[in-house]
Amino acid sequence: MSELHFDPAAPLPSLPGHSSGGRLERILRSGRFAVTAELNPPDSADPRDVYDRALVLSEVCDAINATDASGANCHMSSVGICSLLTRAGYSVIMQISCRDRNRIAIQGDVLGAAAMGVQNILCLTGDGVQAGDQPEAKPVFDFDSTSLLNCIRGMRDDGKFLSGRKITVPPRVFLGGAANPFVPPYEHRATHIGKKIAAGAQFIQTQYCYDVPMLRTFMDKVRAQGLHEKAFFLIGVGPLPSSKTARWMRSNVPGVHIPDAVIERMEKSKNEKAEGKQLAIDLIQEIKEIEGVHGLHVMAYRQEEFVNDIIHASGVMKNRQPKRAPRPAEPVSVLA
């Protein structure tokens, strides 16, 4: 038997009412405003590409989202990224998309991820293969995001695979689902999220929010159904690099809604990049005041260097400094 002297991915001591040993769940359950951020996955086999990007984000976020071929474009896998990050003591949210793997593969990945120290899992439907760089691929969609949540909750709470076969040590994970309040059917989006929560979602991360009035309408419905008391809502934000990119995103990235007024504001400014950053800060300050919002999810594609500034300028962290798991005093050795 071999064992690490020091395990940076070891879970925190279990607390009553907590389903994971992770830091994100603790932050949220203790009523603090949480920040998560998406890591832009590398197109390489070099672990340093992951660590470099994580370092920038980790100073200002409570957990890093490892995307699972988002936009149906192939990158380093979410399992791989999580493996690297957990061994370095980072808190991660492993994203699972239903597009590429069937139920057998996904249940296995959940166990593997939990064994590596993944404490949070975000269940997603996934963009269609037509949106990505390999539209010839076979779409799987054996689960949908809701049935996937239900499956992983069963693995955790009942300790069973879908087949009913017993899992000796169940995965202790905090489960999340995604919401997009900015596309039709608008009036039913909150009810749909209620379904995800009923299936096991404990936190919700939303698509990019550039339309605060629309978010308010959605959150009104969320509160009317009492959903903000059953799950934590983290609202998606991100800086726009230019009005040109904003237009491109709006017409090419599925599910992104950017109002004309936002694009006009960008166009009128002298320095579009700085304006995009300021826009993100302004949005955050409006969003954080909405009742039922528990945190932010920052997606700053290829603008990771701005995340720190945006979070600090918006004041949401209140001088809180997220940390990695403590480092061992001496180098880690392995017992034979």
Binding site: A131, T146, S147, N180, V183, P185, K195, P254
Partner: peptide, 8 residues
Amino acid sequence: RNGPCGGV
């Protein structure tokens, strides 16, 4: 089978 995706 449970509702729309986010790409509508």
